[in-house]
Write a protein that binds this DNA or RNA. Structure first.
Length: 108
DNA sequence: AACCTGACTTCGG
DNA sequence: TCCGAAGCCAGGT
């Protein structure tokens, strides 16, 4: 039997390389449920701290941080910038540049 | 079980 | 691009 969706999400997020980001929807797809973007959020709340997940590398489909200012927004942005992820003048990330291309090797 | 909520996504204007 | 509405699934009350 396959692992639970939740476990899949945890495993996938832990694989996001430094300096890259992934979207909730992307993670949901990789975990096997394209409609479960919201469940990805639950997984984060459930294990972001205990599993030491790179939660800050997860942004929404528009390449923006979904957290609210004062509620983790600035923290996430700061963590990403420290990894080399650049933000737009409107605090957006260029997904064509920083979206985690799962399946692609670092060589090439 | 019903209702509400959530770090979402897609569609139409 | 921004806004509002609908769709989606699961957990807490």
């Amino acid at each position: 039997m396959p692992e639970s969706f939740h476990r899949r999400v945890i495993s996938i997020i832990k694989k996001i390389p430094r300096g890259k980001v992934a979207t909730y929807g992307r993670i949901a797809v990789l975990a096997g449920n394209p409609r479960a973007a919201r469940q990805v959020v639950r997984a984060l709340h459930s294990s972001s701290e205990k599993e030491k997940l790179p939660w800050h590398r997860v942004v929404n489909a528009r390449g923006r941080i979904s957290l609210k200012p004062g509620s983790g927004y600035e923290l996430q942005k700061a963590l990403l910038e420290k990894e080399g992820v650049d933000f737009d003048e409107t605090d957006r990330v260029d997904l064509e540049l920083f979206l985690w291309d799962s399946g692609r090797s670092d060589r090439g």
